Simulated assay, not measured.
Amino acid sequence: MDKKTYEKKPSPCNCLNMRRASHAITEVYDDFLKPSNLSVSQFSIIKHLNYFGPINVSDLSLIMRLDRTTLVRNLKPLEKIGLVEDISAEGTRNRQLKLTSKGIETYKDAEELWQKAQRFLEEYLGKENILTFTTLLSKIEALVP
């Protein structure tokens, strides 16, 4: 069996299959978002900040269903390049994050690229399969309270 055929066969392990699929989808979105210089993880953060900001880190991590330390680690580069800023009063422990004007502009440009990725996957998988897939993912996520 050649290497290429072997690599594409599903594993008997459901977890491994999910991880492979997650990696593939992430790569698709990252490729579409490349002109924005954002990864899909970074785009997701600025998309949430655009919608919910200003917001504190704890609330943002709850809304995004991300571990707080993972979110903080992913926020640092966005703050460093001037897309996100902390507007909390000096000396306050509870950071209030919002998009800068550069962050809003970057978000608007990246949103178009993200929409292209969405359409690509919908065309590739089919609308009905996307709905089924989303339902299954929600059910899987509900395994962990």
Rank of each mutant, 00 (worst) to 15 (best):
M1N: 11
D2R: 11
K3S: 14
K3T: 13
K4A: 15
T5C: 15
K8P: 06
K8F: 05
K9W: 05
S11R: 02
S11I: 06
P12T: 11
C13R: 01
C15T: 02
L16M: 09
N17A: 03
M18Y: 00
R19N: 04
A21R: 02
S22Y: 01
H23E: 12
I25G: 05
I25S: 04
I25M: 08
E27T: 03
Y29Q: 14
Y29C: 15
D30H: 03
D31G: 10
D31P: 02
L33H: 01
P35C: 13
P35V: 15
S36H: 04
S36C: 08
V40S: 06
F43L: 12
I45K: 08
I46L: 07
I46S: 06
Y51T: 13
Y51C: 11
Y51S: 14
F52M: 15
P54T: 10
I55D: 05
I55R: 05
N56Q: 06
N56E: 12
V57S: 09
V57G: 05
V57Y: 00
S58G: 10
D59G: 09
D59A: 15
L60S: 11
S61N: 03
M64K: 12
D67Q: 03
R68S: 08
T69A: 12
T70R: 03
T70H: 04
L71P: 00
L71W: 01
L71C: 06
N74H: 10
N74Y: 03
P77W: 04
E79P: 00
K80M: 07
L83F: 02
V84C: 03
V84F: 02
E85S: 08
E85L: 10
D86A: 05
D86H: 04
I87K: 07
A89G: 11
T92V: 09
N94Q: 15
N94G: 07
N94D: 15
R95L: 11
Q96R: 14
K98M: 13
K98G: 09
K98D: 10
L99T: 11
T100G: 07
T100I: 05
I104G: 07
I104E: 15
I104K: 13
E105A: 14
T106N: 09
D109C: 06
A110G: 12
E111L: 13
W114H: 09
W114D: 10
W114M: 10
Q115A: 12
Q115G: 10
R119I: 12
F120T: 04
L121V: 07
L125Y: 03
K127D: 13
E128V: 08
I130P: 00
I130A: 07
I130R: 02
I130Y: 04
I130F: 01
L131H: 04
F133M: 11
F133V: 12
F133D: 09
T134C: 09
T134D: 06
L136A: 12
S138H: 06
S138L: 09
K139I: 03
I140V: 04
E141L: 09
A142V: 02
L143S: 06
V144D: 01
V144F: 01
P145M: 13
P145G: 15
